[in-house]
């Protein structure tokens, strides 16, 4: 595990995203930094975060490094201020937490190892997974893939990865 951040480093960072517990300490980090330090999620369990991270990365390679699990957990902490795309899809704020918990629990109970995740995702798309519980698997796939696109390609770094000029009027000082 990387060494804890120093106060000097934190002050030098200037623009950051939120508080995360890392190794028992509250730290002010971006989700990407938090995930890199194996953050302690506040809403989802560590196992649920890992499951969402693995599936998100299978859908959109790079999403795990971009901090998809920390992003989701941080937004669920934000309540009414959540930036998750689910608000556009008629999932109200209280229901979003249960949505992601159910999604992760399905992955934990039904998916195999990391190598079988592509097949698992294909079966999610066709709603053909036996034993799936909660919101339809194809809908979960759509939402989680959209979250993964957000963290991977919805930032200046993501645009650069695709070779698109970001052309910000006001550049965001943090990705989310």
């Amino acid at each position: 595990m990387p060494a804890p951040l120093s106060r000097r480093h934190l002050l030098a960072r200037g623009t950051t995203a939120g508080f995360f517990i890392v190794a028992g300490q509250w730290l002010w980090l971006t989700p990407r930094e938090a995930e890199a330090r194996v953050f302690d999620p506040q809403v989802l369990s560590p196992e649920q975060c890992k499951a969402l991270s693995i599936l998100g990365d299978a859908l959109v390679p790079g999403a795990a490094d971009a901090g998809i699990a920390a992003y989701i957990d941080l937004q669920l902490q934000a309540g009414d201020e959540s930036l998750l795309i689910g608000k556009y899809l008629g999932v109200d704020t209280p229901a979003q937490t249960e949505f992601y918990r159910a999604a992760a629990d399905n992955v934990i109970s039904l998916a195999g190892d990391k190598n079988s995740m592509q097949t698992f995702a294909t079966n999610m798309a066709s709603d053909s997974l036996s034993g799936w519980a909660g919101p339809p698997a194809s809908y979960v796939l759509f939402v989680l893939r959209a979250d993964a696109l957000d963290v991977t390609y919805g930032t200046p770094e993501g645009f650069e990865r695709l070779g698109i000029p970001y052309m910000a009027q006001i550049k965001p000082d943090k990705p989310w």
């Binding site: 795309i85 608000k87 930032t155 009027q169």
Partner: peptide
Amino acid sequence: LVSSQIWARKLK
């Protein structure tokens, strides 16, 4: 009004 589709969700 920062240029970000993610942050834009605050306006909705």
